[in-house]
Write a protein that binds this DNA or RNA. Structure first.
Lengths: 206, 206
DNA sequence: CCAATAGTGTCTGTAAGACAGTATTTC
DNA sequence: GAAATACTGTCTTACAGACACTATTGG
């Protein structure tokens, strides 16, 4: 039974905006925080299907346009400038995700060297970067960008890439150690004193 | 000229979800953080009109259902459970606002004593409360709930209402004083030593 | 004087930044 | 042994929480 309002019309009788889902897919490549761009100037996106959740639409974008699956897209905000898309009234629900570089395919651009982007996608990338930085503020590796086991230097390089600048070494180590488990093994084959190898302590999803 | 996709269809030829805007309008009354409820069990809301921004829709809700105007609704998140509304596929873009109690009309309920709410409105209230607490963490009175001039005790009572519990007095005063301007005048007519009266230092919109 | 509130001074613990020093590997 | 990296100890500063004390009003 379809719902009808007091004048007998259903929801479908009112004009609705289209709802798009755009995803800022971040990764760290060559020690730099990068975003995946489609045709060099836009974030991958799609229109939300009527029976689909936003999360499912974002996963579909990731699967079809970046070749990754099983991720955890996170909602950022709705962008709703009436003039943002000249095809009509389109709301964009912006999402962010962060995955290891070796699991995705596509063109990566460092977030500190973006070309002019289509629509309002530059603002979406800004919000995505802010989210990634906040997620790393108090956690070692919230999205598992490193391998299961890693040294503190590798972890610091990840944080410096996300943060976009150098971090004080000793304070960083002290802050992180409480969230890490020492595996007891040592790194091998590098120049210098071998580093201790750590694992992530059990973490909640950010 | 209407945009058409490769098969000649316009955006309107695809089924679209409806987009609703729900607003958790918070205030502080009797030293408690409260939310305005419609019919005792739902947040005020409306459907987004095709030509309207989310912000304008939220302002319209506030004007028509709470009697306040000129506010600053803030987007929280999109709630999109396909089963959240049995009238059809309805996305809700949740908003929050925070205004002085004497400027609104409607039924207020303390947020720590909510009845069961319709749809997923309890989750929206949770997000709204979290936003209000974060907004007050490092700012004296981000939404101007107090008068132009106030004492530190009045400010602390506001923070304790938002925070939902007592705050240490001396640390609170020390943290806040740097964001306040001493007017030089003293409170009058109260029991006890007269308190200094402060104004907010110029602040950025949260 | 008493009750009540305002405001200050001090101690302690924690954490960050800075800096220096020691340890252990490769070459 | 030299270079490079890993780690540790200590000093300073800042700030929060706790506590106690003084100050100033109305009754």
């Amino acid at each position: 039974m379809t719902w009808r309002d007091p004048t007998g019309r259903t929801l479908a009788d009112y004009p609705h905006p289209s709802v798009a889902v755009d995803v800022a897919l971040l990764t760290v490549a060559d020690d730099r925080l990068c975003v995946l761009l489609h045709e060099g100037r836009a974030l991958p996106g799609t229109f939300l299907r009527i029976e689909e959740t936003l999360r499912d639409a974002a996963l579909r974008v990731l699967r079809e346009k970046a070749g990754v699956s099983g991720e955890e897209p996170r909602q950022l905000a709705v962008f709703d400038d009436p003039a943002r898309d000249d095809r009509g009234r389109v709301l964009s629900v912006a999402h962010v995700d962060l995955v290891p570089a070796d699991r995705l395919t596509g063109a990566l651009t460092p977030v500190d060297a973006l070309p002019p982007l289509a629509f309002d996608h530059a603002a979406i990338v800004d919000a995505a970067v802010a989210w990634a930085r906040a997620a790393h503020r108090d956690r070692p590796d919230p999205r598992g960008l490193l391998d299961e086991e890693f040294t503190l230097l590798e972890l610091q390089r990840l944080h410096e890439a996300v943060h976009g600048g150098p971090l004080p070494k000793d304070a960083f180590r002290r802050r992180m150690q409480e969230h890490l488990i020492d595996t007891g093994t040592l790194s091998r084959g590098t120049v210098g004193k071998p580093a201790r190898v750590f694992r992530r302590a059990p973490q909640e999803t950010p």
